[in-house]
Simulated assay, not measured.
Amino acid sequence: MASEIPLRNIWILFLYAADLVQLQGRFERDVEQAQDLPDLIGRLMAHVVEDRLHRNLSRGYQARTAVLPRVRGRIDMLATEAGQLMERGQIACRFEEHVMDTPRNRLVRAALERLSARVSVRETGHRCRSLAADFARAGVSARRPSRAELATDQIGRNENADRMMVALARMVFDGTIPTETKGASLQPGDETTEHLIRRLFERAIGNALRIALKPEGWSIAQGRRLAWPVSGTTPGLSAILPGMQTDIELTHPETERHVVIDTKFTRILTRSNHRDEILRSGYLYQMYAYLRTQEHMEQPPSLTSEGILLHPQVGGSVDETLVIQGHPISFRTIDLTAPTTEFASHLHKTATAQARIGI
């Protein structure tokens, strides 16, 4: 599936997935010169980090305690009295220190070090290695931050440079940056590459929908867990009952429309014993369950909720709709292998079309 996707289209998916589509066109030279996916990410990381270092890295505050000769921050009275510090002209203090060693900077250093070992292009690997050393000299430690630490290091609205840098660093670890052979497209047979593109595809569609439809009054939710409308269960069922979680949900309060979108990074058609190609039945059953089980779980009841199964295009395009017990369900494809300009336009049109599927 990923073997025919041009790197430029992967780049567009990343920009939408990272909510940085406004930066499209800023890194054309790096995208043009990249030889494979790791090289592309390495070049972009180096470009953004070099620019960030020229304008100084963002700093953060780190809580510290220390025994000092004068007051700094707050006095720790218990520690001061217990150690009889004042008799020696000292005071135990608690204060925050302005440091470079923030979770986001540690993540970027860790990503640069990983890239330097994984990128096959010597020049790109050297740039990443050199920049990681610059981070070390600036006082950024080598310890990769935890998810909890990253969650506390919120990036402000006006910190696009940092958002880009952190998004690329996350991509390094999300996809584990596989080694690729040279070429203008991704190579087949690498599960980590498939996993990375699948995640980018889902996130990109969600953000493209938000950008296109939020101004029209739609709300967009991603990854919502659904409950089964059960009236009673045996004691052991809850431990083995499968969960339900939607990829994307659109809601328009004014018109009371509700659309469930499921993105699948697989072929939309499969072979059958009786016909050459048919829609994948399992996905149809899944969407049917999403729509019917929630009919009376929402307020007002969702008796006409709509469903869309959105797949990458493999072979011919598909755009078909049926209605099952009042619920329209559409089957659509988007061509990830199209020329970049055409792909970007198609992605936007796909986003704006999702909320207008009526029959």
Rank of each mutant, 00 (worst) to 15 (best):
E249F: 00
E254K: 09
R225C: 07
Q245W: 00
A221S: 14
T246C: 10
P235N: 10
G243W: 02
T255C: 10
L241H: 00
S231N: 12
S238H: 10
S238P: 08
T246S: 05
T255S: 15
T233I: 14
E256Y: 10
T255P: 01
G243E: 05
A239H: 08
E256N: 13
T233H: 15
G232W: 00
L226Q: 12
S219L: 13
T234F: 15
I248A: 06
T233Q: 15
G236P: 09
Q245N: 08
Q222M: 13
H252R: 00
L241Q: 04
A239S: 12
E249V: 04
I220W: 03
G232C: 00
E249L: 05
L237G: 06
Q245F: 06
H252A: 03
L237C: 09
A227V: 14
T255M: 12
S231K: 12
E249R: 03
E256A: 15
A227N: 15
P242M: 06
L250I: 01
P229Y: 04
P235E: 10
W218D: 11
G223T: 02
G232S: 00
E256H: 15
E254Y: 04
R224E: 13
G236I: 09
L237K: 10
Q222V: 12
S231V: 14
M244A: 00
M244R: 05
Q222S: 14
I220Y: 09
G223F: 10
S238F: 03
I248D: 01
R224S: 11
E256I: 12
D247S: 01
V230P: 09
G223I: 04
R225L: 05
D247R: 01
P235S: 14
W228V: 01
G243D: 06
S219M: 13
G243K: 10
W218F: 14
